[in-house]
Write a protein that binds this DNA or RNA. Sequence first.
DNA 1: CGCCTAGTTGAGGTAAGTCAATTCACGTGG
DNA 2: CCACGTGAATTGACTTACCTCAACTAGGCG
Lengths: 244, 244
Amino acid sequence: MKNRTETALERKLAAFVALSADELGVLHKLHGNRRTFRAGTDLVYQGQRDQTVFILAKGWVSSYKLLATGTRQIVDFQIPGDFLGLRSILLHASDHGIEPITDVEVSEISAKELLDIFSENPRLASAVLWAASRDEAMVVEHLIDIGRRSAGERTAHLILELGARLTLVGKGSRAEFDCPLKQHHLADALGLSSIHVNRVLRRLREDGMMTFRNNRVTIDDYERLAAFADFDAAYLDHERPILR
Amino acid sequence: MKNRTETALERKLAAFVALSADELGVLHKLHGNRRTFRAGTDLVYQGQRDQTVFILAKGWVSSYKLLATGTRQIVDFQIPGDFLGLRSILLHASDHGIEPITDVEVSEISAKELLDIFSENPRLASAVLWAASRDEAMVVEHLIDIGRRSAGERTAHLILELGARLTLVGKGSRAEFDCPLKQHHLADALGLSSIHVNRVLRRLREDGMMTFRNNRVTIDDYERLAAFADFDAAYLDHERPILR
DNA sequence: CGCCTAGTTGAGGTAAGTCAATTCACGTGG
DNA sequence: CCACGTGAATTGACTTACCTCAACTAGGCG
């Protein structure tokens, strides 16, 4: 008997492993203990030593890394249902910072707690780790963006990817979606200067492909934009649960 | 009673999960069934639909993605003990190609076989998936290289990372190691043209920091090179097994 | 009303790309 | 032993995509 809406996390994990009622119960308990953070105050700072994992319930965050030169690179954006800082469990200290872009709501879990739960619920562990593996596919796609696509192509590609991800969790459509990112977020994610991002966005708008303005993205000509960006959503797609 | 040398894979997984004799036995069986591939003949081509996973026993391979424009981006290099194509299990078709750089020896495992073994040996599954997660840290570091480091810095950074990885598996030292990569491999990995890679290597050599020549890398001044590249091996490091 | 942040536009500089020769290292067959 | 072929590395000349610096505009908001 289903008496509440499925969380983004449940929907996400169910795509990888068919979870039992028990496992769902564990998940639900994990996902209690909510905290909120204001936009701009880091959940985790680079170099932090106490190992904590978060599950994002509401809002957007970015994972970034600061370089010695003072520049920063955003590795990925996360949206509700995503795990934050999972990899830091492997390391002595977090190798990257996590900054909320909007006000966010998260569940906090200590590393020890998570590992205990993983020991007792290996199937759940698999589901989470497979999901993490799919997230890696997105990082790979960013790598390709930055390595081999022009500024225009990679900007378009990132926007299309965000659109596809948001559509999957029911927060947007092919034609438009809300997007709290500033131009400097795009710049740090794309390895460009924000000034150049501005020019690129103008170009895309003037060419009638897409409009990024006032925290809203409008795709004016999806087909042309997707062709221009060489975008193929296959890497976001997944099969039915791989473990029954 | 230990009557054979530990494989690179065993050493790698043991760093994440303390494996039982049974689990080691399963691993050993998985790692039978050897095949060889010649340098240049892809193990997996981009778009391939039958899902196979490989464990690399000997040699170097690169995972790359081809773009519509004909350029390619190498996502990562793999060395013995690494899994190849694990993520393709999640997708309908492989989203990247895998090309041997040297002649290689691998164990081939079908997706079905691997998933069955994972179901029966959840701890083993965890070990493998955690290892995959650590590999993601390297992709992240490449992303940062390409996004925010200059050509010289990122070249130096990649070389230092390769040196550190090889040292971990006992195939090199801080001062020098064998490296079968051509300049065009570096170029495709770093998002540069091979002509520019050539100039950058010359610069690094003339500055007395490192020499890349005749399939051999010599680090002439480790401290200065590491400072120049902003290199910190922490992301390659790991704790004692996280699961007992 | 003034302040603050984000966005916009222009001018000029530079890192890295492209095109085109040339050299080098190496096999291989005559 | 030499002529030849082939793929990699090297170097030069020129082009360009993107960066930096600097100024200005547009909106929110106390």
